[in-house]
């Protein structure tokens, strides 16, 4: 089963052992991603979106510890790999674009240096060949005068330009999987549009998969095939983009979609916020982590974490409400085939 997926994360539990106590960063996370697909992971800060992706390339070492579960990439079990084996994959088959292009480039090396480093490290190319490849890459990401740029330092470039360099570095070895961790959050909208367009173009050209980590629902709506909504270290809802946007099942997903102001309506509707404050990961609430903020919270939600409810092959959620509804619907269906299901 792990063969058909490029990325297959099963029941991953990961904790950080901090001086203040154990932070259960990931709780039973499952992710399946095929070649060429784009998966969006959305959620607020601290929900575990980055950790999920980082654990795949072994960037959660030290205070972080994998408690249980298994992580497969391209058929190989990543969590059993030694650091040496990991280094062969990292930057080569899986690469990553970080959020902040201002801080993720080394300020004392030239752009050329930083791109060729990746190429010489992972391939047998000579310095000259690597340089030629670096130039090619800069052209690929739409940077003018690549010759000149290779000799420049990061501070000489604008934010959008730096993010393009990051993408060029990430693509240097034609990875099978690109992890984009809030790649456009630090950028302006018009530059964001350029970068997103570029990423989609390159995805089609190179046939890679993308894991897109973001808190911007607009970004996932336009780019992703599947969406995982995370809250307090759990995937609370998973489905295709259309399913998550048009048939959201989890109360948190519904709340998120309702709470964003829309550009396409003229009437002034009051926003419906999600009340309460984000979860304190050191002392997460008992039961469903979203329970204390949920408007439809029931007694059981504060006692026990809900089991999975699957709607079809691609769409599932963890919500007691869906359990109850599912049961009610079954009962109603069996007794008399009357009205169709309608949601509140």
């Amino acid at each position: 089963m792990s063969e058909e997926y490029l990325v297959n994360i099963e029941h991953e539990k990961l904790s950080f052992f901090t001086p203040a106590g154990e932070v259960k960063a990931l709780n039973d996370v499952n992710i399946h991603l095929r070649q060429g697909e784009v998966l969006g992971i959305v959620g607020e800060s601290g929900s575990g979106k980055s950790v999920t992706a980082y654990s795949l390339i072994g960037l959660t070492a030290d205070p972080g510890k994998l408690i249980s579960g298994s992580l497969y990439f391209n058929g190989h079990q990543v969590d059993q790999m030694t650091e040496k084996e990991m280094r062969k994959i990292r930057g080569n088959e899986i690469s990553i674009i970080f959020q902040d292009p201002m801080t993720s480039l080394n300020p004392v090396y030239t752009i050329g240096n930083q791109i060729t480093e990746v190429i010489t490290l992972h391939t047998n190319k000579t310095k000259e060949e690597a340089k030629a490849r670096a130039k090619e890459l800069l052209e690929l990401v739409g940077i003018n005068e690549p010759e000149k740029r290779l000799k420049q330092y990061p501070h000489e470039l604008s934010g959008g330009m730096r993010q393009r360099i990051m993408i060029a570095i990430a693509l240097a070895c034609e990875p099978k999987l690109l992890i984009a961790d809030e790649p456009t959050t630090a950028l302006d909208v018009t530059i964001q549009a350029q970068i997103l367009e570029l990423m989609m173009e390159l995805k089609d050209k190179l046939g890679m998969s993308i894991i897109m980590i973001t808190h911007d629902l607009g970004v996932v709506a336009s780019m992703c095939d599947h969406i995982a909504v995370m809250y307090a270290g759990r995937i609370v809802e998973y489905g295709t983009t259309d399913q998550v946007f048009y048939e959201p099942k989890h109360m948190y997903t519904k709340g998120l979609i309702r709470s964003i102001p829309r550009l396409d309506t003229d009437e002034h509707q009051r926003l419906i916020p999600i009340e309460g404050t984000p979860v304190d990961m050191l002392n997460p609430p008992k039961g469903c982590p979203f329970g204390p903020r949920c408007e439809a919270c029931m007694k059981i939600c504060l006692k026990q974490n809900p089991p999975i409810t699957e709607f079809d092959d691609t769409h599932y959620t963890y919500c007691w409400l869906q359990q109850k509804e599912a049961m009610e619907r079954l009962a109603a269906d069996s007794s008399a085939k009357s009205s169709g299901g309608g949601e509140a």
Partner: peptide
């Protein structure tokens, strides 16, 4: 262009 660059949180419209 500023308005058209804003990603719309609606998959069908976004496409």
């Amino acid at each position: 262009s500023l308005i058209s660059a804003i990603p719309v949180a609606d998959p069908i419209k976004a496409r």
